[in-house]
Amino acid sequence: MIPQEQSSTAVAAGPASTAVRLLEVRSVSVMFGTFMALDDVSVNLDGGRALGLVGPNGSGKTTLINVVTGLVAAKRGKVLFDREDVSGRAPHRLAHLGINRTFQIPKPFTGLTVRQNVEVAARYGKGRRSVEEILALTRLDRVGSRSSEELTAAEQKKLDLARALSTAPRLLCVDELGAGLSVSELDEVALMLRDVSERWGIALLVVEHLMGFLERVTEDVVVLNAGQVIFEGSLVDALRQPNVIQVFLGG
């Protein structure tokens, strides 16, 4: 392995000639009351690449995704998407720009069928993707006419992914998609993510506790602890860093 020079900025950034900077989180801070959830965090991601976000509970991973997808407003700092400042924009406008996400606890539209769940997002998300294609891709076609609350936990996660994909995102934030899945489901979902990312050139920002899942989707990670970035680089290197190990084992 070639020793990597630790860069202070981009991690999942390929050579400038092949990839374009898609997401740039610039010195973002978020406060909840007196609690500093994110403290001067910067993350960069190029189009079509994947980046893992790891760290112990409460380190700010989900908050960072919430900021990127417009559900939480940053106190300081900026979010640039496609070199455009999108800080403070409403979530639906970000969805139209091509930013989407899945939720840690998926909240499908209860009372709607699986197909209607996807239809709503396909229509309002302006993704112009075929509902049937998305359903087939996420292997939900067989349960398409079922009510979404009847799905298993794994199927609900896939439905959340299907909903996000049908808006045709260029950046997909994935919040603990693997949690609670069986080993075979994990394999299936990781493969699915990898596949859609490559096929449609979707950049992925993946929050995940399960290293096995993460390493199938991306090689690059940012490690957060107590709202701060403590490491950025490859997953393999991260696991060799004493401070990272301490956070995971000692914290």
Partner: peptide
């Protein structure tokens, strides 16, 4: 109509509805 679907989506979950591109 799709509009009715959007309403029911908002009723079920606002965040998911917003991320589906609906101006809640």
């Amino acid at each position: 109509s799709p509009f009715g679907l959007a309403l029911r989506a908002i009723k079920a979950d606002r965040s998911s509805a917003a991320m589906s591109g609906i101006n809640v």
